[in-house]
Design a binder for these strands. Structure first.
Lengths: 167, 167
DNA sequence: CGGGGAATATTGAGCTGGCTATAGTTGCTT
DNA sequence: AAGCAACTATAGCCAGCTCAATATTCCCCG
């Protein structure tokens, strides 16, 4: 009847609802372990990077934060002992954020519950074919609207840009 | 090999990526018309409500904002002439937010482009069967993790809680 | 070499939203 | 009928983020 019932609106609305529900649930579990969502994201990104480290700029590119946002979240996490800063030997402008053993341990405390929630709230709700269809459709959309897609052969978008882990 | 390649992580990561890409694109278009994402969401919610109005509390329940957040966004939108406050005749504690004709006009300026972006970035990337599968899967997850689902027969979750329009 | 433009991280200023307290209102209960 | 608990909107305070400005460093090109 009205525009708000358009199929596209419904689909996007569902996507937003699921995203919001998952985000809220994830955040609640992160908080049980004294982490915010961005802190978990930073830990994850660092832990899956070579030598458990990433330049501030690259960390910003892999998260939803600006570079100044990264500076501040690393400030907090360094204060809490989860990461440290390390000067880049080859470029004195850059500095690395390195996850500490305490940071890795914190991540290991959080991950099992995180995976359990994903299973309980998301993947476990779908039979394998539906999940495969969902992932396939999302991947197609992602590939089509990926920042690289619109920027053409932008070299900034190299293969190191992985799907965001969960946050 | 490592935990980050678990299927659930990949699926959630894709969901987050698509959500982030759409959010960013939507926000850019909203900004062309001088609206923020929450302002668009408020306009949409009001416009699809009876008499173009909603109590502050109900508006908060239908958005991602707290009640004080709603107070403030309505402050800004009232200042910009998009909505007005109206006292509730039957309950002097409540007040309605009512969308003005200027607000409706602004919404009508934004919506066509919004729908076009949804088509271009999302639904248009999928063949009809894939889109149907995607919507079906999302709906199943949504129904399973919907706030009402965990709260049991919580009367606060009535049928007026629709899928979020797009933001 | 050496200068100008790009890149990098950080800081300050400002905006936005949540949490909590508060004041006013309602309606139930005894 | 009175009191009390719940509800409603708002204001104060604070956390976290982005944007713009800044200082330092790198690189390219003459």
């Amino acid at each position: 009847m009205n525009v708000f019932d358009a199929p596209g609106i419904t689909a996007v609305g569902l996507l937003y609802e699921v995203h919001a529900a998952l985000s809220t649930r994830f955040a609640a579990q992160f908080e049980e372990h004294g982490l915010s969502t961005v802190e978990f994201e930073v830990l994850t990104r660092l832990a899956r990077s070579p030598q458990n480290q990433l330049r501030m700029t690259d960390l910003a590119a892999q998260t939803t934060l600006s570079t100044s946002g990264v500076t501040r979240v690393i400030d907090r996490m360094e204060r809490d002992g989860l990461v440290t800063r390390r000067a880049c030997p080859s470029d004195r402008r850059s500095s690395f954020a390195v996850v500490t053993t305490a940071g890795l341990q914190r991540l290991n405390e959080v991950l099992p519950g995180h995976l359990r929630i994903i299973e309980e709230w998301f993947t476990g709700q779908l039979d394998p074919e539906s999940l495969k269809a969902l992932v396939g459709a999302l991947r197609r959309v992602r590939d089509a609207v990926h920042p690289c897609a619109t920027a053409g052969s932008d070299s900034k978008c190299d293969e190191t840009k992985e799907p965001e882990p969960t946050a």
